[in-house]
Simulated scan of single mutants.
Amino acid sequence: MDLDQLRTELGDVDRQLISLVARRQALAAEVGRIKRAAGVPTRDYGQERNVVQRVRDHAEEQGVSPDLAEALVLLLIRSSLTVQERDRVAARAAGTGQRVLIIGGSGNIGRWFARFLGSQGYAIELADPVPPPDELTDCAYLADYRDTPLDHDIIVVAAPMPATNQILHELARRRPSGLVFDVGSLKSPLRTGLAALVEAGVAVTSVHPMFGPDTELLSGRHVVFVDVGVPDAVARAKALFAPTMAVQVELDLDSHDRLIAYVLGLSHALNIAFFTALAESGEAAPRLAQMSSTTFDAQLDVAARVARENPSLYFEIQHLNDYGTESLAALLYAVERLRSVVRAGDLDGFTALMERGRAYLSSRRTEVP
C-alpha cells in the first residue's frame, strides 16, 4: 500500500478504537449500576490488578509493549471510575429539596462545589461580586450574600482567606440555621471566625479539599474535615462526600495547619526555590532543555505548574500559616546540610542523607492498583 492508503487504514483503526472505548464505557457504567444496587464499593483494587496483569500478558503475546498496554488500560479504568463515581453521586440525590448558598461561588473551588452539590440534587445559589460563568447559568445568583435571609440548608464559604474570616464573623452575628463550612487551605487565619460561629451555636465545621478545581475522579484524593467543637456538623459535611471514593481525614485545627506547612508550604517553597535558582542562573531555558534528564524534566514539569498558580494564594499559604516558618526552616537546614557534605567531600555523609530519604519514602504506605 502507498502512504495515503496506510493513513486511511490507520484512520479506520483509530475509529474502531474509539468505538471500542465507547463500548467499554457503556459496560463500565452498567457495572457501576449493578455495584450500586448490590451495595458494592465502586473501586476494587484487586480486580484492577488482575485486569492490568491480563493486559500486560496479552500485550506481550501480541508483540506490544506491556508498559504501553498498562498505561492505556489504567487511563481507561480511571475514565470508567469517573463515570461510575459521577453516577453514584447523582443516584444518591441526597440534596433533593434542599438549598445551598456558596459564598464566592464564581471562584475556582466555588464552581467545583456548585457542580458537585448540584449533581446531588441541591438547589445552588451563588453569591459573588463576579457573575458566574456560563456553565453555571442554571444556578441562582446574587452579588452580595448579605442580601439573603441565610435560610439555606448548607452555606459554603469559598472566598479568599482574608475575606473568609470576616464572612465567618458576619455569619456568626446572623446565626444561620443550616450547616456552615469554609474550604480554606489554612485554618489559622480563620480561627476567630470559626470560634465565633461555635459560640453562636451554629452547626459549623471546616473542610479542606486536597485537590484542584479541575478534579473529576475523587478516588485517592483526600478531603480533610476539621472539628472545631461541633461533631454533628463534621458528620453532616462528611456525608456530602459519602457516595464518592475520596479518602476522608479528620484533624484538629492546629494539626491541620502543622501538616499543611509541609504538604503544601514545603512543596510550594521547594519548587519556587527551584525555578528561582534557574531563572537567576543565567542559563537560558532552551539551552537547558537541550541538556535535560529524566529527573530534571519531571521536576521542571512540577515547577512549571507551580509557577502558573495564583501568587496571592501561594503567598497566603506561606505567610498566614502559624506553622509556616517551621517547614521553611527545615528546607533551609536540609539545603545547608547537603551543601556542607558536598563541600567537605563527605561521601559517607552524602550516602547517609540518601539512605535516610530512601527509608523514609519507602515507609510511606501507598496503594497501587
Rank of each mutant, 00 (worst) to 15 (best):
Q84P: 09
A359M: 13
H169D: 13
R33M: 12
Q53A: 09
Y141P: 05
A269K: 10
S185H: 09
V335A: 14
A352L: 03
A277N: 02
R54C: 12
D144G: 03
V302H: 02
V130S: 06
T8V: 03
G178I: 14
M161V: 15
A93M: 04
N165Y: 01
D182Y: 08
Y333D: 14
A235C: 09
R78D: 15
G63N: 01
F211H: 10
D153Y: 01
V89A: 08
P189C: 04
F225Q: 04
D254Y: 11
G212H: 01
G107Q: 12
T325R: 15
H152R: 07
G184M: 04
Q53G: 05
L81G: 10
T205E: 05
P286H: 00
P149R: 01
L186D: 02
D254E: 15
S206A: 15
V13D: 00
I260W: 02
A307W: 06
L270V: 14
A38F: 05
A29I: 13
Y122G: 01
L332M: 12
G63H: 02
L179A: 09
K35I: 10
G193H: 04
R115W: 08
A303V: 05
S79Q: 13
Q166Y: 06
Q318S: 02
L361R: 15
I103K: 07
D346T: 04
L240M: 13
